[in-house]
């Protein structure tokens, strides 16, 4: 016997397993994400990081002697992150997302779902 709930007769999908394919893009779990991280090369002076490290002590954060500022890209795909998708992300990382003259790609990896879907168990620090 089905338990009735206020929206039990609604046509809206209730769980991932009951989503028809055309609605799966609405479900966070079905959006694969690849995270690409890019950092300025160590030998390149990072003016932005230099500005940040100068600002920290003014707020009382005297523990930090250096800051380097990089970039994080989240690439979304419909469906799962396959090895082919990861390879394509690596290619995109070295051709467009970074400039090898001044930057290094430090990481190309599939994101943990909880990391990016906003449904993580813990609230963001400081929220």
């Amino acid at each position: 016997m089905r338990v009735l709930s206020p929206d039990a007769d609604s046509e809206a999908p209730r769980s991932a397993s009951r989503l028809s394919p055309e609605f799966r893009h609405l479900q966070g779990a079905f959006v694969g994400r690849v995270v690409v991280e890019v950092m300025p090369k160590p030998e390149i002076l990072d003016p932005q990081g230099k500005a940040v490290v100068g600002a920290l002590p003014r707020l009382g954060f005297t523990q930090f002697s250096g800051v380097r500022q990089g970039k994080r890209f989240e690439l979304e795909v419909d469906g799962e992150v396959t090895p082919e998708i990861l390879a394509a992300a690596q290619e995109a990382a070295v051709t467009l997302l970074s400039n090898p003259v001044i930057e290094d790609v430090v990481s190309v990896a599939e994101a943990e779902p909880a990391e990016v879907t906003g449904e993580a168990s813990g609230a963001p620090v400081g929220a």
Binding site: P47, K50, N99, V101, I102
Partner: peptide
């Protein structure tokens, strides 16, 4: 390449 001016 070009990066931000050193004085920002």
């Amino acid at each position: 390449s070009m990066v931000k001016n050193d004085h920002l």
